[in-house]
């Protein structure tokens, strides 16, 4: 563990130096990270302002939902996003070979080698929206479930992104990882919006509603403890699935480039 902690520290130092090379772009990335989330907030707020509520979600619930997703997105993008995009180029150019022969866990290295520090800019407005939208009274149990649910959301989003990016080993040129950007919009929506069949799919097949919708409901005192805990269980299963998927995919890796 100490070895990996030292490795993460070295990665952090390296990425800070790298991001500071392009300071203007860093500042713009910091600001632009808010863009899509605020766009979705504007959309949902405009709709709710005209119809009063989307299912059981009122304006302040929407703030918590979008804020929660900004927190999950900020953490996931900071820790993993750049790396997910690089998996494809590692496969195409054959540089995955150099990762596989290093004395370190290959999934760790392909997932965490680069940090995108500018994505942390999403955390502050995300927390701000959650605080503004949270319903009184403050309940410790709900808050703890919310924090664990949000952490589970980060894990699930990482697992989904990683599995999609790993498919590049078979499809080579097809950037399936790009589908995650499309799914972002799905994750930012209240669960009530989906028709039954779609909600079933996003609960049991591709568990996207656990990423932001379930934690947000918990914080607003409208969630069930069992569902919140199920989110944590789903995240563990998703991580296990991603790990198994990586090793299965590696069996098909044929070192096409170099």
């Amino acid at each position: 563990m100490r070895y990996y902690a030292r490795l993460m520290l070295a990665i952090f130092h390296n990425c800070v130096a790298r991001e500071m090379q392009f300071r203007a772009s860093f500042v713009m990335s910091l600001i632009s990270g808010y863009g899509w989330s605020l766009v979705m907030l504007l959309f949902l707020s405009t709709v709710v302002a005209r119809v009063q509520a989307l299912g059981t979600w009122e304006q302040r619930d929407i703030y918590v939902l979008v804020g929660t997703f900004m927190i999950v997105q900020g953490l996931t993008q900071c820790l993993f996003e750049t790396n997910m995009w690089r998996i494809g180029s590692h496969v195409r150019e054959g540089t995955l070979d150099f990762i596989l022969i290093k004395p370190v866990d290959s999934q760790f290295l392909v997932s965490a080698r680069f940090l995108r520090l500018s994505a942390l800019g999403l955390l502050l407005p995300g927390v701000g929206l959650v605080v503004v939208g949270a319903r009184a009274p403050f309940v410790w149990a709900d808050t703890l479930l919310y924090v664990s649910g949000t952490a589970a959301g980060v894990a699930i989003l990482y697992a989904v992104s990683f599995v999609l990016a790993t498919t590049t080993i078979w499809f080579v040129r097809a950037e399936m990882g790009g589908l995650v950007y499309g799914l972002f919009d799905v994750m930012r929506l209240p669960a009530d919006v989906y028709p039954k069949g779609v909600r079933f799919t996003f609960t049991y097949v591709l568990p996207l509603i656990f990423i932001a919708s379930v934690p947000a409901q918990t914080l607003q005192h409208r969630g069930h403890v069992a569902v919140s805990l199920a989110g944590v269980g789903v995240s563990i299963l998703a991580l296990a699935f991603a790990r198994a998927f990586w090793f299965i995919a590696l069996r098909s890796y044929a070192s096409t480039g170099s």
Binding site: F22, A24, S25, V27, M28, S29, S32, G35, V39
Partner: peptide, 15 residues
């Protein structure tokens, strides 16, 4: 001018 401008692009397209 900026060498790396992806942040500007993201801001532009979200707007």
């Amino acid at each position: 001018w900026t060498i790396e401008s992806s942040g500007i692009f993201e801001l532009w397209w979200s707007l």
